[in-house]
Measured scan of single mutants.
Amino acid sequence: MTLTLTVPPGAKVRVRITNENGETTEIEVEPGETVTITLPAGSTVRVEVEVVDPDGRKRTETFTLKP
């Protein structure tokens, strides 16, 4: 399973991925970048995406991906 994120110009994104064992991976994606994350097959993962807009506003979306 893959997750692809494209960050709009001016925004910053931090992604936290937590697996079933509670292990967390965190990455930051710079403005204008596209990143593809390969998620472990057969695992349920929690993905938290934090977006910081150019004006400093933050918003966070959290979702769970199941196999």
Rank of each mutant, 00 (worst) to 15 (best):
V52R: 04
T64W: 15
R59P: 00
D55E: 02
T25W: 11
T6D: 14
T2N: 04
E23C: 11
T24Y: 07
E61I: 15
L3M: 04
P8Y: 14
V13P: 07
E30A: 06
E28L: 02
T25C: 13
T34P: 12
V52G: 00
T62G: 03
V15K: 01
T60C: 13
L39I: 05
E28N: 08
V15W: 07
I17T: 12
V52Y: 03
P31G: 09
E23T: 07
R46V: 13
S43Q: 15
P9D: 06
P67E: 04
E30H: 09
T24G: 11
T2C: 14
E20R: 08
P8W: 14
R14S: 11
N19A: 09
V7C: 07
T62Y: 14
P54T: 05
E48Y: 02
T2K: 08
E23D: 08
S43W: 09
V49F: 03
P8N: 12
E26W: 06
R16C: 04
E23F: 09
E30I: 14
M1T: 03
T64H: 04
F63K: 11
D55S: 04
T62R: 02
V52S: 03
T4R: 10
P54W: 05
T6R: 09
G56A: 00
E48K: 02
E50N: 02
V51T: 12
R59F: 10
A11H: 02
V15N: 00
T25P: 08
I37N: 15
L5I: 06
I37K: 13
P31W: 08
V47S: 00
T34S: 07
G22A: 07
K66D: 14
V49G: 00
E50F: 01
S43M: 14
T34I: 12
T60W: 12
I37C: 11
T24L: 05
R57A: 02
P40H: 13
V13H: 00
K58N: 01
V7M: 08
D55V: 01
L65I: 14
R57H: 03
V49P: 00
D55I: 00
E61A: 13
V52L: 02
R59T: 05
L39G: 14
A11E: 01
I27Q: 10
T38F: 13
P9L: 04
L3C: 11
V47E: 00
V13Y: 01
T4V: 09
N19R: 11
A41E: 06
E33L: 10
I27P: 15
R57D: 01
E48V: 05
G32V: 15
L3R: 02
E23V: 09
I37T: 11
P67S: 11
E30P: 06
R59C: 14
T34E: 07
T64S: 01
R46M: 11
L3K: 02
R14E: 08
E61R: 09
G10N: 09
R46P: 01
T60F: 06
P31M: 10
L39P: 08
E23W: 13
T18Y: 12
V47G: 07
V51E: 00
V13M: 06
L5S: 02
P8H: 13
V35N: 06
G56Y: 00
V15E: 00
V45Q: 05
T64C: 15
T64M: 09
T18F: 13
T34Y: 13
I17M: 12
D53I: 00
F63N: 04
G56S: 00
V52C: 05
V35A: 05
R59M: 02
T38H: 06
T2V: 07
E30N: 05
A41Y: 13
K12A: 11
A41C: 14
L65V: 12
R57Q: 07
T36E: 14
V51S: 03
T44M: 10
K12W: 07
L5V: 05
P67V: 15
T18I: 15
R59D: 00
V35G: 04
P40A: 09
R46I: 11
G22H: 10
N19P: 15
P8S: 11
L65N: 00
I27Y: 12
P67Y: 15
L3W: 13
T2H: 06
E48Q: 04
N21D: 11
V45C: 05
K58R: 06
V29T: 11
K66L: 14
D53C: 15
I27N: 12
E61H: 15
V47K: 00
N21Q: 10
M1I: 09
G42Q: 13
K12L: 07
T6Q: 11
R59A: 01
V51W: 15
I37P: 03
T62S: 08
G10H: 05
G56P: 00
V47C: 02
R46E: 05
T34R: 13
R14M: 12
K12R: 05
K12Y: 09
T44I: 10
T62F: 07
R16Y: 05
T44K: 02
I27K: 09
E61L: 15
V7I: 08
S43K: 14
P9F: 09
G56N: 00
E61V: 15
G42V: 14
E23L: 06
L39T: 07
S43V: 11
I17H: 11
T36R: 10
G10W: 01
S43I: 13
G10D: 04
N19G: 10
V7F: 15
E28C: 04
P67A: 14
G10F: 03
N19V: 14
I37R: 14
T62P: 00
E30Q: 05
V15C: 08
E28V: 02
P40M: 13
P31F: 09
R16A: 05
L65T: 00
G56H: 00
I17V: 09
L39V: 04
L5R: 05
R46S: 03
E20T: 04
E48P: 00
G22L: 06
E48H: 02
P9V: 06
E61N: 02
M1R: 03
V51P: 00
L5F: 11
T44A: 08
L3I: 04
P40L: 14
G56K: 00
R57T: 11
T6V: 06
L3V: 05
V51M: 04
K12E: 14
S43R: 15
D55K: 01
T34L: 14
V49I: 12
T38C: 15
A11G: 07
P67I: 15
E61S: 06
L5Y: 06
R16W: 13
L3F: 06
E50Q: 04
V45G: 08
E48A: 03
A41M: 10
R46G: 02
G32Y: 13
V49S: 00
T2A: 07
I37F: 13
D53Y: 15
T62H: 06
P8A: 12
R46F: 10
E28H: 07
V45Y: 14
V47D: 00
G10I: 04
P54S: 07
L3N: 02
A11K: 01
V29M: 12
V45N: 07
T6E: 10
P31L: 15
A11I: 01
E28Y: 03
V35M: 08
T24W: 07
A41R: 12
A41D: 07
P54V: 07
G10P: 07
T6H: 10
V51R: 02
G22S: 09
R46L: 10
F63H: 11
V15A: 05
E26R: 08
T60R: 02
T4F: 12
P8I: 13
K58M: 04
